[in-house]
Amino acid sequence: MAAATNFHSQLVGWLKILLPLAALMLLSTLFLFARNTGTSSEIPFAEIDAAAAEQRIAAPRFSGLTNAGDILSISAEAARPDTSGGTDITIDMPRLSLDATDGTTLRITAGTGQVDTSANTAHLGGLARLETSSGYVMETAGLQADLTTGTVTSDGALEIQAPFGQLNAGQVTFEAGNDGAGQQMNFTKGVKLVYTPATAAPKDE
C-alpha cells in the first residue's frame, strides 16, 4: 500500500505543476490575441492548439518500490498532462527499469507511453523492447505494467531471443518474486521454441 501511495503522490505532484502551467499559457496566448491590432477577425485556432501542445515536462523521472520491494523506475524524453482534465500522463520515448530484490533486472524501451495515475498502471506502446539480466531479448507491440506489483504483461504476441535459442509466444508475463522465489517469466498462448545448442569448445590436441 505504501508503494502505491508513493507512485500516486509523485504523479499527482506532476499534474499539480503541469495543469496550472497549461492554463497560464493558454490565458497568456488569449491576451496576446486580444491585443493584436491586425485587421483579420479570424481566431487562429491552430496557434492555440500548438501552444497548448507544448505544456510538458522535459526528461521526467520517478521511481518507487513494488509490494515485493523491487525498485521500479520510469523515465521519458517528455511528459504531458491529459488536456481533457483527466489524470493520465502521456510520456514520449519511455524507459522502464525493474531491479528485483534477487538481483535480476528488466529493462524496457518503447516509442510511446501513458501513465494512469488513478489505476497506478503504465502502458508502453509502439515497438517495445525488453531485455533481462538473464539474457532474454524480446520485442512486442505493447506492454501493460502494474506499478504497485511490478507485474508486466505484453499486449499480444512477441519474439524472444533466449540464451538457448529462439522463442515465439502469444503473451509473456513478468511477475515479482514472492517468498524469495525471485522474478518469474511466464510464456503462454502458443509457445514455439527453436533450440540452438551451444557450440562445443574445441579440444586441445
Score class of each variant (00 low, 15 high):
residue 15 L to A: 05
residue 67 N to R: 08
residue 62 F to D: 03
residue 114 Q to R: 15
residue 93 M to C: 06
residue 108 I to E: 01
residue 13 G to P: 11
residue 63 S to L: 00
residue 131 E to W: 10
residue 171 Q to D: 08
residue 72 L to V: 13
residue 68 A to F: 06
residue 8 H to V: 07
residue 180 G to S: 11
residue 129 R to L: 11
residue 107 R to D: 11
residue 70 D to L: 07
residue 163 P to A: 09
residue 30 L to D: 10
residue 151 T to R: 05
residue 116 D to P: 06
residue 107 R to T: 10
residue 131 E to A: 12
residue 81 P to M: 01
residue 192 K to P: 02
residue 93 M to R: 10
residue 74 I to Q: 03
residue 73 S to E: 14
residue 177 G to H: 09
residue 141 A to S: 10
residue 169 A to D: 00
residue 183 Q to V: 15
residue 132 T to A: 03
residue 50 A to E: 14
residue 92 D to Y: 03
residue 197 P to H: 01
residue 133 S to N: 04
residue 86 G to H: 05
residue 101 T to H: 00
residue 60 P to D: 05
residue 86 G to F: 04
residue 114 Q to F: 04
residue 176 A to L: 07
residue 159 E to P: 03
residue 95 R to P: 03
residue 122 A to I: 01
residue 96 L to N: 02
residue 174 F to M: 13
residue 37 T to Q: 14
residue 93 M to N: 06
residue 10 Q to P: 12
residue 172 V to Q: 00
residue 193 L to K: 08
residue 174 F to I: 11
residue 90 T to I: 08
residue 103 G to S: 05
residue 16 K to Q: 13
residue 203 K to H: 07
residue 131 E to D: 06
residue 66 T to G: 03
residue 174 F to C: 13
residue 116 D to I: 01
residue 146 D to R: 01
residue 133 S to Q: 07
residue 172 V to G: 08
residue 124 L to Y: 00
residue 111 G to P: 09
residue 56 R to E: 06
residue 74 I to V: 14
residue 197 P to L: 08
residue 41 S to L: 12
residue 148 T to K: 02
